[in-house]
Each structure stands twice: as C-alpha cells, then as structure tokens.
C-alpha cells in the first residue's frame, strides 16, 4: 500500500470516527448524569437526518437554515423523549428505565416508518460539502475534511461548557449526587433536560453530516450507528466525554483500516465493532478512560 493510499484511508477513518464521536458523546453524557443507556439515541440521530431532509427537500429552505432548524428540533426531541419516557419513572428500578428506553427507540423507528415511509430517500447534496478536493495525491470530498474540524470545534465548546460554566458545574454536580445538588438549589430536572438537549443536538450535527456523506436515508438507519457509538462510548469509558471521542476515533479508523488492509473481510465491518466491545469488556470493562465504578451505598 502506498503512503498516499494510506493517507486517503486514514482521512476517511478520521472522518467516520468523528461522526461516531459526536453520537457517542450523547450516550456518555446521559449515562454520566442518569446511569442510563439512552437506547433511543440512535433513533434521535435518525430523526435529525429526516428533519434536515424535509427542511431542504420538501420546504425548500436554504441548507444552513434547514440544518440549524433540524439541530434545534432534534434537541427538543431529545428533551421530549426524556420528559415522557424517562422522567416519570426516574425513581423506578433500573430495569424499568432500560425497557422504557428500548420502547422509546422502537416507537421512534416505527413512527418514522409510518410517517416518512420505509423506502430510502436521498439526502440533498450540497455543492459546498460534496465537491472533491485534491490535497497532494489524496483526492477526497470537502466534507471529509470538514467533519473532523467541526467535531473538534464542537468538542472544545462542549468541554468549555461543562468545565467552565455554571450550567456545566450543575451537570457535574447532578452526575455525582442528585439529592445534594437539589439542596444547593440546582434545578435537577432542568439540568437533566439540558443534558439530553445538548447530547441530541450533537447527534443532529453528526446526523446531518452523515446524511451528506451517506445520502441514502432510512427510518432504521440509526440502529447500527447507534449501537456502534454506544460501543465507542463503552470503549472510551462510559460517562467520560473525552473517552467517547477516543472510542469513536478508534472505531472509525479501525473499521476503515480493516477494510483497507483486509478487503476480504469487508462483510465483517460491523462485526469488528462488536468484537472490539467483547475484548474491551473482557480485559478492561471500565474502558480506556473510565474510572472505577463504585456502587452508591
């Protein structure tokens, strides 16, 4: 394999990894604050792609307006799911909430199938993102460059929000001790909703870029990316945002490299993620950056 070809694959891997990272952050944020795997997250991601699709294709909005609206709507959808599927049973046993999460996921998938139709639609192609550029001997889509840049910018913003703002401090406090956070005058419900909103909006940014990169969109398109990004979050250490990003990159680059070096294994690209999950769970169940989890007494 030539260096140029390797760089081409690496760029593609980093780009895919960035998308995984954006979605994985949503899993890890929600887990961090509620100790809950939000199984509807992959479907919230799917809805964002449809929101953007309808904005541009059906309502003829300019792409930036449609994308912005889709991001906001997805944030609202995330909050709606939290308010309806999780909040009413927050005090219930973990297993009830888990089942509710799976139910919310099925509901969104089937709702999308009924409303949007089960046939694939084609995501609008926007010249600015889809044009090809040459960098040396590497020829790739503009989008492939933009995805990691946008991801890193959002990540920096997110880390600032969490570590240096009052809302971020509230999120960190709620993630450790809900009762004491209440005693401090923190509106716990609002903080949790805020977390879902942020996580869903990041998934929407990922979703829109996903649609531009892989334009065939389906109501079930969130299932496999959803599972993979959950795996990415586990690999990185669930609850840890930087970990989710590393996990996303490891998964994205690993997947592309697997296909590049061993093309005969192409059919197993999805299996790669699950094998990695099994290995991680066997040898380092807390993930790369995960802290030791001690059960609250």
């Amino acid at each position: 394999m030539t260096l140029d070809l390797f760089l081409q694959h690496l760029t593609n891997g980093i780009s895919l990894g960035s998308l995984y990272a954006l979605i994985a952050i949503g899993y890890t944020m929600v887990y961090g604050i509620l100790r809950l795997i939000n199984f509807a997250h992959g479907d919230i991601f799917m809805m964002s792609v449809y929101f953007a699709f309808f904005g541009v294709a059906t309502f003829g909005m300019p792409w930036y307006a449609a994308f912005l609206l889709a991001i906001l709507l997805t944030g609202a959808l995330g909050i709606l799911v939290e308010r309806t599927a999780y909040k009413p049973i927050r005090e219930a046993p973990k297993i009830s909430i888990l089942i509710s999460a799976i139910g919310a996921s099925f509901l969104l998938e089937n709702l999308a199938t009924v409303i949007f139709g089960g046939r694939p639609k084609t995501f609008p192609q926007i010249e600015l993102f889809t044009k090809m550029v040459d960098v040396g001997a590497v020829r790739i889509q503009m989008l492939t460059f933009m995805i990691p840049v946008i991801t890193v910018a959002l990540l920096i913003g997110l880390l600032y929000l969490i570590n240096h703002t009052k809302s971020g401090m509230a999120m960190r406090a709620v993630s450790k001790d809900i009762e004491t956070a209440r005693l401090m005058g923190i509106d716990v419900n609002r903080t949790i909703s805020f977390t879902f909103g942020i996580g869903s909006m990041l998934a929407a940014v990922g979703g829109i870029m996903w649609g531009l990169k892989f334009p065939s969109i389906l109501p079930l398109m969130g299932v496999i990316p959803g599972l993979k990004c959950f795996i990415a979050a586990v690999i990185g250490g669930i609850g840890n945002i930087k970990g989710a990003v590393y996990g996303g990159f490891i998964l994205g680059v690993g997947e592309i490299m697997l296909i590049a070096f061993l093309p005969e294994l192409t059919g197993y690209r999805d299996a790669f993620a699950f094998i990695l999950l099994i290995v991680i769970l066997l040898f380092r169940p807390t993930g790369i950056m995960g802290e030791k989890i001690s059960e609250k007494v």
Binding site: M169, R172, A173, S175, K176, D177, E179, T180, M184, I186
Partner: peptide, 14 residues
Amino acid sequence: RVFPNLTVLENLKI
C-alpha cells in the same frame, strides 16, 4: 456529601 469531582473552589461556588 461534597462533590468529589469538583474542586474545592467549585464546591464553594456551587
């Protein structure tokens, strides 16, 4: 019940 993941300063601010 101090917040272990927050600094001393942040605990006071909270």
